[in-house]
Design a protein around this nucleic acid. Structure first.
Lengths: 148, 148
DNA sequence: TATCATATTTAGGACTACCTAAAGATACAA
DNA sequence: TTGTATCTTTAGGTAGTCCTAAATATGATA
């Protein structure tokens, strides 16, 4: 099992805070699949880093700085999932892979990927290339670019 | 500095082995930006895992199993770099990001991304959508799908 | 072949995220 | 208010990757 990064904690805390106003030790531990004492330890560290306000026995909430990080991560996550779905990955795999990757992509790359997703989603009509890609995916045959 | 994964070592060893027949401790250390004793330690571990043949004072070579892993990683790396370049990322950033990500993508996703890259590269003519995307990238304007 | 610069390993230690077991706090129900 | 089940933290320890300093092996050169 890969070690949990600061980013993963921040994201989980964000989700729990949205859900119930606060992120409790046990809930974080359940989601990250680790034991509660490990979470306590990390919450103290995140508190020292000014990413969360941690009150013993009362769980944690994100600071503005932590919130900013969380929102950027959620945005990256969303972009990756949408991209994976465009290229024909099932939602479940897309979610898992997005979690694995989202912390490792440069801001510049993420921005460009976002553009690509928007380019595809904002098409005024179903883009021909998407249909062609689906066809290529199934058959291995690459249709001519400008034929339907 | 992120801790080096087994995959990173395998990839570096592959590169050095291709270049000079063997991967020496110091060369690996230089590339991974760590000190030689750390490399020795890991080579012993990789040897135990049957990923390399490690002979003290003589460096390491990949086993067939290690070679297989390396080749899969190189392939993933290539796919990612090619994809990033399609969506307009400069080569340098593409290389860096590919290294960061390649170990974290599910096989299924990698396969699909490979298809997407091939779909784009194998186009019988320059795909219209790529031009449209470049235009969208520069201007923010989404052209109609089937207009040049 | 003896010497010596360089490469490598060994020894010992730091740091981090994780764990289990035990102690302490909380909150709800009797 | 007291008891108790649950949640949380503290204490102490493991494992993995990294480090520096010191010891050792290698190989080229004199």
């Amino acid at each position: 099992m890969a070690l949990k990064t600061i980013e993963e904690y921040v994201e989980v805390i964000y989700t729990l805070e949205m859900r119930s106003g606060r992120a409790h030790t046990t809930d974080i531990a359940l989601i990250l699949n680790i034991k509660p004492p490990s979470v306590t330890e990390m919450l103290q560290k995140l508190h020292d880093m000014d990413l969360v306000i941690y009150e013993p026995y009362r769980g944690a909430k994100l600071t503005p700085q932590g919130m900013k990080m969380a929102q950027e991560l959620m945005q990256s996550h969303k972009t990756l999932v949408e991209f994976f779905e465009i290229i024909g990955i099932d939602n479940e795999t897309a979610e898992v892979d997005a979690c694995q990757i989202e912390h490792h992509v440069a801001a510049k790359t993420m921005k460009q990927l976002r553009k690509f997703v928007e380019f595809t989603q904002k098409a005024p009509c179903e883009p021909i290339w998407v249909k062609h890609f689906e066809y290529f995916d199934k058959t291995g045959i690459r249709k001519k670019c400008n034929l339907k």
